[in-house]
Every structure is written in C-alpha cells, then in structure tokens.
Nucleic acid binder design. Structure first.
Lengths: 198, 198
DNA sequence: AAGTATATATACCGGTCGGTATACTCACGG
DNA sequence: CCGTGAGTATACCGACCGGTATATATACTT
C-alpha cells in the first residue's frame, strides 16, 4: 500500500527543477551536472531539491521518465496523423527524423545506460522499458497493417531504429535515419509480399 | 613536425596503467573512475600516471584507441577465416555475436560518446572513426562479393550492426544480433538478386 | 487562530576530484 | 662515475561532490 507513492502533481519549484535538470542532464551528462548547479540554474535552494525529490538518483529517474513520456506522446501524435495502416509502420522513421532534428545528443536512454554502470540503478529499467515499448509499438503497427507471419520483423525494426540514432550521433552519419527507413521499407515489403524471392 | 609525437613503446608501468584503466573505464564508466583508483589498482603512484600520459583526458583517449584497435584486429581475424566472399559479409555479425558474448557493457565508443558531452573532446573522434571504419569495411566486403549497385547497403549494415548492440544491452533483447543478421541476409539477398520484387 | 506545506537563505559535513610538488631509489649506458 | 629515465612515497592544492542542519518567511486550509 505504502510502497507506491501517489503521483502528486509537481509544485512550481519542482517543475522548474525538473525542467532545468532535464536540459542539463541531457546536454552535459548526468555525472558532470551537480545538484548545486541545478539549484542555481533553477533559482532554487538545494534543500528544495531534496525536499521534492529525495536524492539525485531519484531526480535522475524522474528526468528519464519525463523524457520517455515526451517521446511516447510525440510518437503517438505523429502516427495518428497517418491514415494508411501500412504507411504508418514506416512513419515511425519519419517521426524519428523529426525528433532527431530537435535534439543533438542522441537518445537519452542510451546515454543514461552508458553512464549508470550499476545494474541496480532504477534508471536502467526506464531505458529498458522504452525499448520494450518501442518494439511492442512496431508489433502492434505490423498487426494493424495485416503483416503477420514475420515474427522477427518487429525486432528488426527496433534494431534499425536504435541503430539509426547511434549512427547519426556517434558515427556522424547524417542520413542514417533515411538509410534505416529504406531498409525498413524493404523488409516490410518482403514480409507483406512473400514468395517473390526464392 | 613536433605536433605528432613518436609512438614510443609503453613502459611496463604504463602498460599496467592502460590495462587497469581500460577495465575500469569500460566497466564503471569514465567519470566515475578517478585517477587515484587507477593508480591504486595498477600498483602505481599518480605521478607515474601523469608522467606517462599527461592528463586523464589523454589516458581516456589512449584507452579508446587501444580498445578500437583490439576490435578491428578481432574482426579482421574472424573474417579471414571465411573463404566465401558472399558469406563473409554476414560473418561480421557472427564475429559481433562472439564479441558481445565476451563483453557485458556494450560498445565502449557509444558509451564514451554518451559520457564525453564536450564536442571538442578528442575521444569523440576515436568513436566516430570506428564507425567510419566499420562502414568502410562493409563497403569493401560488398565490393569483394560483387554486390554493387546498392549504394545504401553498407550504411544499412552499419545501422543494423550498431542497433544490434544497443538492443542487446540497453533493450535487454538477447537475440538482437541474430535478428540483425537475419535482416542483413534479407537485404543482401535482395541486392544480390535484383528484380525478384516489383 | 493554528497548522501544514512550500519555499527561502546560509552554513556546514566528510569525501573525492584532477593535478602538482618535493624528495628519494634504482638501473642502465656513455 | 655520472647523468638520465623510470619509478616510489607522501603530502598538498582549490574545487566540487551529494547530502544535512537550522532558522525564517509566506500562503493556503481548516
């Protein structure tokens, strides 16, 4: 009963803290940003941070969750605009391209995984959940499009999705999302029209 | 002339430092590992570290370079064992699977990119170079296999390669390399036997 | 009017950060 | 025999780390 705290709405100061911490964590990394800096930038004292979030670790988890929610909401919104169920599968890559253009430091979940080396850190579960959600999204979209009998395809699309982000930022390959979408289109076509190959 | 230092062989202490720092940086992350810890674990004083490497940043770069060299040598060795030029393209994923089984923290280059938020940090160039080398490797293998006229394919294989690593570790999807190899096989077959699809 | 929640300001804690300074030992090569 | 390179030991530096303590002000509820 007491284990799961009630989701109370954030106080104004807490919202400011989360916004500032989100920007700083994403842009400069979790370890390099101290709570003193967050307090200063948010116009808040350290005590307020600890009163609202309890610890830096909890603040990091809140940051990752918030970021994950934004990403999911963005993706759902973009997919809703696409009528054709078949095209909607590939529209994930259009949305990714748009998202990528707005952020220059890659995937916050992947970056957090890299920084949080302790397997027990709760932030890792947030990152893992996002990837599970994404592969489930692909599976759902494929099912909606009537593409069945290709059990690996949703996982393949996840791999293309994650690889596109890494290739863009770490590899500096600007067209990686386009490249990934072309691969996705080919795999999707092969699964939708079986028998065209030996 | 004086800009590029001569590659002098590492002293025994320097080798120990690099080995220990490599393990610690990879396993726990660059920021969480201090030079005091490296000195202690390597049985060396801090002064020796700074005498040999000059700064922590330079030590990080040496770590990334060393790691990159190991990876390239491993890949080249594994590919040399495969006679068939066509199969050799997919053998990259077999080698990756073997490599992945030996390391539990994903790609050191991707992790370093996440930690080194300063775009000017020289470690970033090492990470980028590895991805450029990998895509060039794919392009060479495809050319050797006689697969031409698919200009995006090498980049697509890189995306699958990087995505497989992320999906494995961040996403916890154990079969991601297998999934990626299947996708690579399908894309390769389509490029090698054109005209089987509309 | 009292109590609670939210916030401020300021000072402090022990510990670690990357990096430097000083002094000493040892082995090797001219 | 003497200098040089490689190494150890130890102490120190200012800055920052995550986190806590204390005391005060304000605003909304009941």
């Amino acid at each position: 009963m007491t284990a799961t705290a009630v989701e109370r709405p954030l106080t104004p100061a807490a919202r400011r803290i989360l916004a500032v911490a989100g920007d700083l964590f994403y842009e400069r990394g979790i370890h390099t940003v101290g709570v003193d800096l967050i307090a200063r930038e948010a116009g808040v004292t350290k005590k307020t941070i600890y009163d609202r979030f309890g610890s830096k670790e909890a603040l990091v988890v809140a940051y990752l969750r918030h970021r994950d929610q934004r990403w999911r909401a963005f993706m759902i919104d973009r997919l809703r605009r696409v009528d054709d169920r078949y095209a909607r599968v590939l529209a994930v890559f259009d949305a990714l391209e748009e998202w990528e253009a707005a952020w220059d430091r890659g995937c916050a979940m992947v970056n957090a995984y890299a920084e949080l080396s302790d397997p027990a850190h709760p932030g890792r579960a947030v990152a893992r959940d996002q990837k599970a959600w994404t592969v489930e999204l692909f599976a759902q979209l494929l099912d909606d499009a009537g593409v069945r009998g290709a059990p690996m395809l949703a996982d393949q699309l996840l791999v293309l999705h994650e690889g596109a982000v890494v290739a863009t930022h770490v590899g500096g390959r600007d067209s990686a999302v386009t490249v990934a979408r072309a691969a996705a289109r080919a795999l999707l076509a092969a699964a939708a029209n079986p028998g065209t190959s030996a």
